[in-house]
Amino acid sequence: MVMTITSARPDPRTPVMTAAGLRRGLVAALPFILSNGLAGLVMGLTYKGLGLGALQAILFSLLLYSATAQAIILSMWASPLPIVAMVIACIATNSRYLLMGAHLRQLFDGLANRKILPSLFLLADASWLMTSSDAERNGPDAGYFLGASIPMAVGWIGGTALAYVAPLTANGSLRLAAALLPTMFIATLIPSQWKGAKSLWPWLTSGVVALVVARFVDPSWSMLIGGGCGTLVSMMAKTDG
């Protein structure tokens, strides 16, 4: 599969994939090497605490490339692995990518699939937001999307690997704190999800149902059942805004 990157754009409204966009995205996203690197490092420490080897940990961060999905999968860790529940959790937690992808289709419709589909391997919340913003200013450029995605991926995967290279260990209190990082990862996403009083009842429902399921049924299903019930309450509102 050959991905062609052109050097100029013919029309500001026409979707393109340019080298200039690639450079612009790379530069704009450089700070993510540090922030994703730190997050990847703590994720790597958590994998290390679970006893996973470096290869498996790096493959997790490379192939899943999703802090949310990886954190939730870690919370479901058991032997044998509950693969079906993990796949469902992946689908549920990454469902937002369906909408991001649908939005990117609106931006890049007309570009050959061989250009855009490989880049979507690196789709992340931040790269999508940055690309949407850049498209409004400079027109839709898939080169920008790819360029912005690369530092984020390098930080995340590199950070995971660093946990195995650096002389860091997780014992006692440190091990406990590291095991809590997935929950903290998700907590950092909460402020961006808050929609005022409209979020109150759905979130209360999600929390209470999750608590009951985790305590009396099976902790592996608490997120899906609790979140599903809360989402149904959200849907009772007339508008989503």
Partner: peptide
Amino acid sequence: FLRLAPGNLFIAFIVAGCLSG
């Protein structure tokens, strides 16, 4: 449903995480 699911899923996840932590 997909648009509204993430925040609710996150809350449910955090509650279960705090319970075990």
